[in-house]
Design a binder for these strands. Structure first.
Lengths: 190, 190
DNA sequence: AATTTTGTTGACATTTTTGTTAAACAATTA
DNA sequence: TAATTGTTTAACAAAAATGTCAACAAAATT
């Protein structure tokens, strides 16, 4: 892996996996075991590294989901696939979305780009159809999508807090999260 | 309101409402329209202000829920109350939990305190009972709790991202969120 | 009113973080 | 081999953020 790739990978690890949302360039350089100047050499500035990481995060997120959302398979299978893929992503990068939100909120660059997802709208139509066919309960497709994302993501994103409040150890929490794939499917379809 | 209270309130507004997770002490002072030195006067250091805000956030969160969780009312009503109260909190402070997570992940101080919630465990027992009585589908109480929190919180927390990806305007998104209270209740109990 | 206490301010010092540069080094090519 | 190009490094400069202090103002107490 090139130094440039390495730096990006480690930055993602720090932000998306570890959730160190206010990590410095030094932190990133340390994690990548490179001289901090290389961050400026390859990305010019801290801000541009952030932008690059941000952009790639959105891209990745979308392209991961695109594969599933455009797949030509029965609805229920598609949802299963979606859960499978997205959960895997979540466990790898629990705080990716949190990073995106924080950047969008914090200022500037993220707001300008228009990045609506074609694939998601495609999936929304699938949901509408499934709703019409009685495969799922009738409700606005967006809500079905919200429900899916919510049920998957929140327990992962809020893990440190919930572990504290509910006094659950690491092992048990992992177990709980693993149980959720099946549980969500059940909740959504029955 | 005393200056000390004002500073805390504005800090919370910046962190929890606006989601500016890397706001500086100057940002906070500006928002409160006070001299930055006053932050040091009242809180000694940036870190202590953060700790105070953090602690109060956990306290508030817990005491809000305690009222509901200990209430002596039928299960379904209790859940309705819970949704009502928590949604209201969410709309006021969408990023409070995100702040907590970021702080827990980033440093240190948050980890030491043991803050498990008695009230939540009480509610978990209610859920178990309701499950036994067939009021809700049988499943581990924690999952029921996860589901509730998830369905409420995620669309609020991820709002900026979902608005972008789904291309939804502010007004429509507000509408969607308002629809969810009823929708969640339906999903959970039917 | 005089005095003590508390609150507030701006200037400055310190620390932390980021950005720049020149020089060393390595790899490639002519 | 020499020259060119690309990569890495350490030292330094600049900027940003935090912390400290003495002076001043307001409020409370005597």
């Amino acid at each position: 892996m090139s130094t440039e790739e390495l730096i990006k990978a480690k930055a993602k690890e720090i932000f998306f996996t570890k959730g160190h949302l206010h990590a410095t360039t030094q932190d990133i350089a340390d994690a990548a075991e490179v001289n901090r100047s290389l961050i400026n050499y390859y990305f010019r500035s801290r801000d541009q590294l952030f932008q690059t990481v941000y952009r790639e995060a959105v891209e990745d997120l979308k392209s991961q989901l695109d594969v599933v959302f455009y797949a030509d398979i029965p609805f229920k299978e598609k949802v299963e696939q979606f859960i499978e893929v997205y959960m895997k992503e979540l466990l790898r990068y629990p705080y990716r979305e949190s990073f995106l939100i924080t950047e969008i909120c914090s200022n500037n660059f993220a707001l300008k780009e228009k990045k609506k997802s074609e694939a998601m709208h495609h999936f929304l139509k699938d949901i509408e159809q499934a709703s019409a066919q009685g495969i799922i309960k009738p409700c606005k497709p967006v809500h079905f999508l919200f429900n899916l994302f919510s049920l998957m993501a929140l327990p992962v994103i809020m893990r440190p807090l919930y572990q504290k409040l509910l006094d659950i150890n690491d092992l048990d929490y992992n177990q709980l999260i693993n149980e959720r794939k099946a549980l969500i499917l059940k909740l959504i379809f029955d």
